[in-house]
């Protein structure tokens, strides 16, 4: 059988994996953005009680591998009576990890606002909330866009680790096929191309966004 025929035969399975990767990534990333924005707001306003909790959460999530986080969810949590499907574990794991990265991204944007902007806001008598509402949030969000885009790319790549809990996403599909039919080269090529299809456009958008923020035109 020619390589091309092998690839063609595998495409339906890869297509399934492709959409599973996209779906889990999308849900995980959305959740991560929600968690991240809540955490960064808590950090920005230094809310009592919650702020130290957020710090503990982000340090734990950022400093441990997703793979171990997934093992915990998938193998250890059922011992505590919390049983999730593999896909649910994947999404929760991605939100857990991604939330901390997104929080750092938003916080970096807020901190990137020049102090003269804050002083200008204070000088016209804005309260702390008004300053956040009219100065910090709009400018900070614009500044954090490149970091968020970089996080999105990072999290999509992290979904490849879902293979360890047997979620049939792209990487898992390729490894399964290799295990069954031994057409290693062909399946690996499809796998790389599949990731490239998702990630190259995103990385081009990221480059564009970085340039816009660097030249200070974004959000104007």
């Amino acid at each position: 059988m020619s390589s091309w025929a092998i690839i063609q035969q595998s495409l339906p399975l890869f297509q399934k994996g492709f959409f599973i990767t996209l779906k889990l990534a999308a849900l995980g990333i959305l959740g991560a953005i929600v968690v991240g924005s809540i955490c960064s707001l808590i950090q920005y306003f230094k809310l009592p009680l919650l702020n130290p909790l957020v710090t503990i959460y982000t340090e734990i999530a950022r400093n441990t591998p997703l793979l171990i986080q997934l093992f915990f969810l998938y193998y250890a949590f059922p011992q505590l009576g919390l049983r999730l499907t593999a896909s649910q574990c994947g999404i929760v794991g991605l939100i857990f990890l991604g939330g901390s990265y997104m929080a750092a991204g938003f916080t970096g944007g807020f901190e990137g606002i020049s102090s003269s902007q804050l002083e200008a806001g204070q000088a016209i008598g804005l309260s702390r909330w008004q300053l956040a509402r009219y100065v910090v949030l709009p400018q900070g969000l614009a500044l954090s866009v490149p970091a968020l885009a970089a996080n999105i790319i990072f999290l999509i790549k992290e979904t490849s680790i879902f293979t360890v809990i047997a979620i049939p996403e792209l990487t898992n599909t390729a490894l399964d096929l290799i295990g069954m039919y031994y057409h290693t080269n062909e399946y690996l090529v499809v796998l790389v191309v599949a990731y490239a299809i998702i990630l190259i456009p995103l990385s081009l958008i990221l480059t564009y966004l970085e340039r816009r923020v660097r030249y200070g035109t974004f959000g104007n």
Binding site: K157, T163, I178, L188, A196, L199, S203
Partner: peptide, 14 residues
């Protein structure tokens, strides 16, 4: 662009 898991398998197999 290629996830590290995939890089590992690329080198491991190829």
């Amino acid at each position: 662009i290629v996830p590290t898991v995939v890089l590992l398998f690329l080198f491991y197999y190829i």
